[in-house]
Design a binder for these strands. Structure first.
Length: 430
RNA sequence: GGAGAGGUGGCCGAGAGGUCGAAGGCACGCCCCUGCUAAGGGCGCAUACGAGCUUAAACUUGUAUCGAGGGUUCGAAUCCCUCCCUCUCCGCCA
């Protein structure tokens, strides 16, 4: 959520910044709602003040045993008018909140202006693209050839966009997650957390998935009391449960920064991408991801983002996978982000780089929604900044390992750092 | 699934229709005292949104907020209804 003060003070400026990411702010609507809110709120408060002071008089008079009927009569009519005003006020406030809840974050000044992926800025390329003396296969052919990937059975069990891993392939998938988790926890100073995979709507609102992107989520309906229906949701990323650790909290200054790493499955309905990446495990309804989250002091958030990005890169470097880092342009950034770096890994079969991590600074956007604060040096609560990034998407990392380490005979070499997790195995073969 | 007990400020915890934004304690901040430390004393200390004043802050003032939403009442933390959450015991269960 944006700071409503920013909208009040500099509506045109905010609108301009939002326009760079393709969001048209209905400024007139905002002004109208604000004007309504202001006038109704003033009148309501005047009316409430009158009621309160009269009621106080009644209390005092009664305590002295005086006659009270005169004042009672005076206050009698206040009720209806006040109730109406209060109702109107809460309506307007709800409209205003709904209006604010769907406005994306304003991009940081360093974000390149652009419309799409094509306008992203390449920051650096790392590693050497492997050369193959034979015709490269994609991960599906490699995996099926090794009897490790089985999409047909997954489709029978569940449907499209699910995968089934078997034998050493399943173990390699687990090895990757373990390796990532260990690296971040032991070498990068993150606290490992195990979190719920099903969360409530408040948490989804906190990180910005709701109210705008419900169609991307898997909803778990629950029937509550009489009129009560309250949904749970499967997490689309560990960002949601992990960042919400600090929702409605006031963190002591000395506890900052907080760094968490979690390995979770992620569930996405992938509504709106029906035709894309239908083959293989690039785009699934269920995939595993190791996620890094930092909860930081506002002045440290960009420093933190560079650090976090570096931590994610280490994984690729240790795995010996070539990648590049791109800074997303305004038009390609997610709803809540102020600045995002994507890490893209080289996939030989696609002859291109594909996203394997996304590292963002949300500044106070999520913190404001979550009321996640810390106590500053003056002792006053202040909004935190939140950051997160994949470190990394496990399924896509497996794809990258299979494709980059494939051999002419259909086998796949196992990167050194993973071998301890594979019982010393050096290669996947039939 | 059955039975019970609770949800109050950063934390603990009183309050049971009026003068309660809420006693007391802890934590925190400033000050005093003290050779150091410990102990002691004084003062301050919720958040949000308005209005006034202001370049701004500070300040003054109004309103709201005692799990959430509704209701009763001139007036609700306190009474009624619905819901959510937490805890304890029994059952079941990995």
């Amino acid at each position: 959520m944006l700071d409503i003060q920013a909208l009040r003070n500099d509506l045109a400026g905010v609108a301009e910044r939002l326009a760079t990411r393709g969001f048209v702010l209905d400024a007139a609507r905002f002004q109208e709602l604000e004007a309504q809110r202001k006038s109704i709120q003033t009148r309501t408060q005047e009316s409430q003040a009158k009621r309160n002071s009269s009621s106080k008089l009644i209390g005092q008079a009664k305590a002295k045993g005086e006659d009270v009927s005169a004042i009672m009569a005076e206050v009698a009519n206040l009720g209806d008018e006040l109730k109406q005003l209060e109702t109107r006020l809460s309506e307007v406030q709800h409209e205003l909140n709904a209006f604010l809840a769907v406005i994306p974050n304003t991009p940081h000044g360093g974000v390149p202006i652009g419309k799409s992926e094509a306008d992203n800025l390449e920051v650096r390329k790392v590693g050497n693209i492997p050369k193959f003396a034979f015709e490269v296969k994609d991960h599906v052919s490699i995996g099926e050839g090794l009897d490790g990937l089985d999409f047909d059975t997954a489709a029978k069990i569940s449907g499209a966009r699910f995968s089934l891993l078997k034998g050493p392939m399943a173990r390699l998938h687990r090895a990757l997650a373990q390796f990532m988790l260990d690296t971040h926890a032991d070498q990068h100073g993150y606290t490992e957390v195990y979190v719920p995979y099903i969360v409530n709507a408040d948490s989804m609102r906190g990180t910005g998935q709701l109210p705008k992107f419900e169609e991307d989520l898997f909803r778990v309906p629950r029937v509550m009391g009489e009129d009560g229906e309250q949904n749970f949701y499967l997490i689309p990323t560990a960002e949601v449960p992990v960042t919400n650790i600090v929702r409605d909290e006031i963190v002591p200054l000395e506890k900052l920064p907080m760094k968490f790493v979690a390995h979770t499955p992620c569930f996405r309905s992938e509504a709106g991408s029906y035709g894309r990446d239908t083959r293989g495990m690039i785009r699934q309804h269920q995939f595993d991801k190791v996620e890094l989250v930092q909860i930081v002091h506002p002045e440290k958030s960009y420093e933190g983002l560079e650090e976090l990005l570096g931590h994610a890169e280490v994984i690729l470097q240790k795995l010996g996978l070539p990648y590049r880092v791109v800074k997303l342009c305004t038009g390609d950034m997610g709803f809540s982000a102020a600045l995002t770096y994507d890490i893209e890994v080289w996939l030989p079969a696609q002859n291109t780089y594909r996203e394997i991590s996304s590292c963002s600074n949300f500044e106070a956007f999520q913190a404001r929604r979550m009321q996640a604060r810390f106590r500053n040096a003056q002792g006053k609560p202040e909004l935190l900044h939140t950051l997160n990034g994949s470190g990394l998407a496990v399924g896509r990392t497996l794809v990258a390992v299979l494709e980059n380490y494939q051999q002419a005979d259909g086998s796949v070499m196992i990167p050194e750092v993973l071998r301890p997790y594979m019982g010393g195995m050096e290669k996947l073969s039939l």
